[in-house]
Design a protein around this nucleic acid. Structure first.
Lengths: 261, 261
DNA sequence: AATCCTGTTTGATCGAGATCAATGAGGCAC
DNA sequence: GTGCCTCATTGATCTCGATCAAACAGGATT
């Protein structure tokens, strides 16, 4: 069992209704305390592929910066598409909405991740992006990005890679939902989080879930009770420990073998 | 009931094992009988956004052309990524493969559709692309596309739109699998096919399925028996008629209301 | 303190779809 | 023609996850 009680970092997210923000543009952005050159997320940001230290001043030109309160929207479905966003701090979920009111979590994003790319197809966003806790986002106006891409082949390549990764990410989600049992889906989810935390220099085995059981279930095509039951089962099987939002993975290989068998 | 027996256009696809083709490049491509300017799919091809008639000769430079036999692969997972493909004739499925051997159909493509975009992220394809019947594909070497994008902003914009559409398509598939019953998934699938046939000037209500029940089930996260049962149910409910591969949708609004309720 | 609210856990039951199984239909090879 | 193969249909049964329901924990508010 976990010995310490861990408070969530997002006490207000649930009780505060999601509110619409103005679209984020350079003209309305707050001044950035420091530029890309000094950003501690440089290595994870997709701009690192084309913003070399010597181009730091160019980075200043491209990026805007804004704080999003917990539960608030970075953008809403149907909002005119103007920017792609890089998460600088906090966590964000994207929600896919269907015409008939159906909705589903389509992704969780952590610092360094890029989101909002879906908007390019039709000039308006195809998801809601909601902050799970207080979050800082860098908004990259799409017009600037297009310009930059024309001027810098490396920028174009980074952008294409990012697009393609979003395609692959959703494709993997399809396979997970189309072929895996509840236990396998949860294991896949946990290992994905683990890998991403690890890539950011954080612990691969111990971390906080920033989202609810309901949101996890929505992403995976499961009900919240099923998510809860699977967590309990994995704990009793000795593969993980879970107490509220606090997760400790006991056996990463154990979770992996669950998925294969 | 349907009064005529309709032969499938793909008698050999099932009995012939999928075989690997050489990667398609300009140097190995067959000469094209005619250029983009005269292509009857111009209006559906993503190149139509930037290849104006006056640029027809540029189109000749960009495009290569090749016939793929039924059951053969345009590319395989892991193949080095060199081209994006536009389907000129026939039907193609893409298969997503997982490390553990898991596989799932991730999309069906019809003439005018673009596929293969997933390869850009990691420089190698993330899917298999298999012809469902004899197919003609236009291969667009990625290097050329990058060059063209740098020179022509309209080309870049078309390419981005296409990427983003692939993201949205997979996201919709996630919602379908994550929130819909078997009947609703099948109805969504049929309406999607109907819309796409209709957009190509073909009948929205009567068409041939080029794929097996198993392949449909794989795309939707269902077993082939379930697909078959749902077809039978929809027929007995008077919403569609189905005989083998031949589908006639009796009530498009009826199918739509199935999805909502 | 008491109350309320959201999120979580756990139990009992139900049902949609998977699984197992048998049969049939169409096409191809010989 | 016969045999073989893949694909499709339909029935019987089973099972996993959904649903319905109750209880509880932690915070926030008053």
């Amino acid at each position: 069992m976990l010995t310490s009680t861990v408070a969530t970092s997002n006490p207000a997210a649930g009780s505060r209704p999601a509110q619409r923000l103005q679209p984020i543009g350079m003209s309305t952005s707050l001044p950035r305390p420091q530029g890309c050159a000094n950003c501690n997320l440089r290595s994870h940001c997709f701009t690192s592929g084309f913003l070399s230290p010597s181009h730091a001043e160019f980075g200043e030109l491209v990026l805007a910066h804004r704080r999003i309160g917990a539960g608030q929207a970075v953008y809403r479905t149907g909002d005119s598409f103007s920017s792609v966003y890089v998460l600088k701090a906090g966590f964000v979920k994207t929600l896919a909405l269907f015409e008939d009111g159906r909705e589903q979590v389509s992704g969780f994003y952590m610092p360094g991740d890029t989101f909002g790319v879906d908007g390019i197809a039709f000039g308006q966003h195809a998801t809601d992006a909601i902050a799970l806790d207080d979050a800082d986002v860098c908004a990259i106006p799409y017009d600037n990005l297009e310009q930059l891409s024309l001027a810098a082949p490396a920028a174009q390549r980074s952008l294409y890679r990012m697009f393609s990764q979003e395609i692959v990410r959703r494709q993997d989600a399809m396979v997970v939902m189309g072929t895996m049992s509840a236990g396998q889906r949860i294991a896949t989810f946990l290992l994905d989080l683990s890998r991403r935390f690890s890539a950011r220099g954080l612990s691969a085995s111990e971390f906080l879930l920033r989202m609810t059981r309901d949101e996890i279930g929505s992403l995976l095509g499961l009900k919240l009770e099923t998510v809860s039951r699977v967590f309990s089962k994995l704990q009793s099987d000795g593969l993980m420990e879970i107490e509220g939002k606090h997760v400790r993975i006991v056996s990463i290989p154990g979770l992996r073998s669950l998925i294969t068998h």
